[in-house]
Nucleic acid binder design. Structure first.
Length: 650
RNA sequence: GCCAGCAUAGCUCAGUUGGCCAGAGCAGCUGAUUUGUAAUCAGCUGGUCGGGGGUUCGAAUCCCUCUGCUGGCUCCA
């Protein structure tokens, strides 16, 4: 075999020979012209390359198109460059930060020198991007020496790029040029701008340079692009649909919760209907936890400041939380509790504990208050007063693994019951470079981090590791769920903690009659009731499973000749434990049905003279329509079965 | 907290370049209608246009400021 022939291995395992220097695009063309027209990039031995970059050695490759996540990312990253070119054309002198692809689209951080972008500017940018795209300018990769790169951006006057260059090693720097725009960029990029057929700049936001609030704030322009107008339209339609699921909108429409400026920002007021959902969830969790050996406690909403000085919370959050409240007693200070753990620790300490008693599982639906930054508040997902389905497990070191796994099972039970299928378990570890924000010794942290990693492996959870996301006293396993718009939120959390037992000098007497230190596990399967309900609303679009629905059934009499029968049915339903109401308004049945559908009430009991005579119900299901004419007893039975099963349907 | 945008009746929204007593639909109340699977008809009630200040003969509309909300950034025990 000649020296300038290389072996290319395809994803299906087949191998073909190509001349050295072949590009992904060449390979695609050798398969089919159609494929060549679609190829955006190529994955060469686990690294994504430009489709136009020569491959010099044997390699495993996969051709990437719009259908591949990496293909989309490349497409969007190239779109960011295109936007940068448009920006530079329209607003000469603009300085560039970074412009990556994100999960849905891309952004570029720019310094516009104080200029504020208007709606018209945005439209003009979109138009310019489309115009530039039509030129089908190639994205040209060029390795450059560091000195050359520095010279280029000095000449151009781009301080942010120069700062980025400082951290890059010489010999690994590349420039990409398309049209009249050259950027410092690792790549890869799509072959040319012509692939970008539809562009939408979605919003503008401020963003600190390099994510540091001490740095100047740049203007971040978000956008998304597609290979066809049709796909952009579909995306925009999806956005519209997602907005209808917004828990803030549904919460108002379905009268679940509200906020009052008078009460204070971030302090939710649960309305009667929302409270039913909350209490049903609470009852569910109460039941499964008691079955698993948890003991429920109740503790006050405030505690002496000293408690948080011991726990370390005061040092860490004292300045940025609700401030201590004074009492008539000089020098005495109390704080709203931001956590339940110190209270539970004091319960543990209220009696001597034997190794035989462990694990002790102390649970509470505890309401806590945290002074979240005003800009952070968001509906029910980020609030200043919320209720955790909290518990603290005090166990012997040898019990940590088993207890941790049991908690994982509990979280999974909760997520499964509410049909949260696409969660991700996030292993939140310390910042690898900065241990100063954490309390406790190195050994404790390593033990705790290892315990979590082991447990996740054992349970084979879909997991990602995030450094720097740990709590200050220990690592966490967080269960992340997406909202209607795809934003990730932490729901359940499990934390292994060797530090607070140390700080509070917790003890138990071992089999050896010596004192030992227990290990704590903090855990909350819902996280907070508020956030959980918010995500649940978005997840089911307000169409709650019957066991949670605030109103489970409504009786709709066709005329008021059957009002008495309707009232009788309400009484029967209530007697059977159903949350049932009656629509006795003087309206036509179509109107009553429409209103019940709008209110997303799961079952409508429609009754006229015919039903009255047979003691029947014409049963109608929300979003499904007429189910049929059934005896009352059958209907009640059916509903109660559905409730008992916690049946969930999307 | 930072950047940007928004704020009109309980809800969803109109309100042209600052100019007649600020409008509509839904909801609510009255009345008529007695209805068979997603909106019956008519009448009425309801807003000092988020608060405060300013410019102007005149402000929902322009400016300042405060409050709240929205999207991001930072933060998230």
């Amino acid at each position: 075999m000649s020296a300038n022939t290389i072996q290319i291995t395809f994803p299906d395992g087949s191998v073909r020979s190509y001349p050295a220097g072949v590009t992904g695009l060449d390979i695609a063309r050798s398969i089919s012209e159609g494929l060549a027209r679609e190829v955006l990039a190529v994955k060469v031995n686990d690294e994504v390359w430009d489709a136009t970059r020569p491959i010099e050695q044997d390699a495993q490759i996969r051709l990437l198109t719009w259908r591949d996540p990496e293909g989309k990312a490349t497409f969007w990253h190239s779109s960011a460059h295109l936007m940068a070119e448009a920006l530079e054309t329209l607003f000469p002198g603009v300085k560039f930060g970074v412009g990556p692809a994100i999960e849905q689209g891309f952004y570029y951080d720019v310094d516009l020198g104080g200029r504020q972008l208007t709606e018209a500017d945005i439209r003009a940018l979109e138009q310019k991007m489309t115009e530039l795209a039509q030129r089908k300018a190639s994205y040209v990769r060029k390795p450059v020496a560091k000195a050359e790169a520095i010279a280029y951006f000095k000449e151009k006057g781009d301080p942010y790029k120069l700062e980025l260059l400082e951290d890059l090693p010489d010999g690994q720097i590349t420039f990409y040029t398309q049209g009249n725009f050259t950027d410092l960029c690792r790549g890869p990029h799509i072959p040319h701008t012509g692939f970008i057929k539809a562009v939408k700049l979605t919003n503008i936001a401020g963003a600190y340079w390099r994510g540091d609030e001490h740095n100047p704030m740049l203007t971040r322009i978000y956008g998304i692009s597609f290979p066809s107008q049709k796909e952009l339209d579909a995306y925009l339609q999806w956005l519209e649909e997602a907005k209808k699921r917004d828990h803030r909108k549904l919460g108002k429409e379905l009268e679940l919760f509200t906020f009052s400026e008078q009460v204070g920002m971030g302090l939710p007021l649960w309305l009667p209907k929302g409270t039913i959902i909350r209490e049903q969830l609470q009852a569910f969790l109460h039941e499964v936890q008691v079955a698993q050996g948890y003991q429920f406690v109740v503790t006050p909403h405030i505690a002496n400041k000293k408690l948080y000085v011991i726990s370390g919370h005061y040092e860490k959050y004292g300045e940025s939380s609700f401030q201590p409240m004074k009492t008539p007693q000089p020098g005495e200070e109390f704080m709203l509790k931001p956590m339940n753990c110190p209270h539970h620790i004091e319960i543990y300490r209220s009696a001597p504990r034997s190794y035989r008693d462990l694990p002790i599982r102390i649970a509470e639906f505890g309401t806590v208050y945290r002074y979240e930054q005003s800009g952070e508040l968001h509906g029910l997902t980020r609030v200043r007063g919320f209720t955790q389905d909290d518990a603290h497990l005090f166990c012997r070191p040898d019990q940590v693994k088993e207890e941790f796994e049991k908690v994982i099972d509990l979280v999974l039970l909760v997520l499964n019951t509410l049909h949260f299928k696409d969660f991700v378990a996030q292993i939140s570890l310390r910042d690898q470079h900065d241990h100063s924000k954490y309390i406790g010794c190195e050994e404790s942290w390593q033990q705790a981090e290892q315990a979590i990693v082991d447990a996740v492996q054992e349970k084979q959870l879909p997991a990602v590791v995030e450094y720097g996301e740990a709590a200050f006293y220990g690592p966490k396993l967080d269960f992340m769920v997406r909202d209607a718009l795809g934003r990730k939120w932490q729901l359940g959390t499990i934390q292994v903690d060797y530090n607070l037992p140390e700080r509070f000098q917790l003890e138990y007497v071992g089999a050896d009659n010596q004192k030992h230190r227990p290990v704590m596990i903090h855990r909350a399967p819902f996280g907070s009731l508020e956030r959980f309900v918010a995500l649940l609303i978005e997840h089911c679009a307000g169409n709650f499973p019957l066991w949670l629905a605030p109103v489970q059934a409504i009786v709709l009499p066709i005329t008021d000749k059957v009002l008495d029968y309707a009232r009788e049915l309400v009484a029967e339903g209530k007697k059977a434990g159903l949350r049932i109401t009656l629509d006795e308004r003087n309206e036509k049945i179509g109107k009553k049905i429409r209103d019940a559908e709008t209110q997303k009430i799961p079952y409508m009991w429609i009754v006229g003279e015919k039903e009255m005579q047979q003691h029947h119900i014409a049963l109608r299901k929300h979003m499904k329509g007429d189910i049929g004419n059934l005896p009352v007893a059958d209907v009640i039975n059916k509903l109660n079965t559905e409730i008992a099963e916690k049946y969930f349907e999307l």
